[in-house]
């Protein structure tokens, strides 16, 4: 059975997101910062009179931080009843692909937490990322 996936790029890698969770793809200009929250919450953004929480995907994976400013691509997903905007570097296409397979590479721990398998698109393997894992962010560092 084939399902739809959105291909985007995060941290210089092409990845797939399940299109079922994706509401839309937008360009954001101004993000209101939120002080005193976990680092992967980049701020708030208003879209059609809704307040979205912006997730810095890079920080959520624990791979650094995305500089905030200028036009930014974001994928809008809903998670537990709250809308989120996941920052991505670029969005390519929506593709149809067969059911995901377990990834055949040994993933680094950062990616392993967010990965839910692997899909194949035009002969290239793409890691399937779970938006909920990005929303949850990196595991809390024990104090």
């Amino acid at each position: 059975m084939e399902t739809l996936f959105l291909i985007a790029s995060i941290a210089g890698q092409r990845v797939a997101l399940p299109a079922y969770h994706v509401e839309s793809v937008v360009e954001m200009e101004s993000v209101t910062p939120v002080p005193l929250v976990v680092p992967h919450i980049a701020g708030l953004f208003a879209l059609r009179s809704r307040v979205l929480t912006v997730i810095d995907s890079l920080a959520a994976l624990g791979l650094g931080r995305t500089p905030i400013g200028g036009l930014m691509q974001a994928v809008i997903v809903g998670c537990d009843g709250h809308p989120y905007a996941l920052l991505v570097e670029s969005v390519e296409d929506v593709v149809r692909a067969p059911r995901p397979q377990p990834p055949c590479a040994v993933l680094s721990p950062e990616w392993a937490r967010a990965a839910r398998g692997m899909i194949e698109h035009e002969g290239e393997p793409l890691l399937l990322i779970d938006p909920a894992a990005l929303v949850a962010g990196p595991p809390a560092i024990a104090a």
Binding site: T32, V34, L36, V37, F45
Partner: peptide, 24 residues
């Protein structure tokens, strides 16, 4: 607001005022 934002413990919610910039 999203659970991650509420977890900060100092926010009661999010709102959209007239200028349509989100505010906590």
């Amino acid at each position: 607001a999203a659970p991650g934002v509420m977890a900060a413990g100092i926010y009661a919610g999010a709102t959209l005022p007239d200028n349509s910039r989100p505010m906590l």
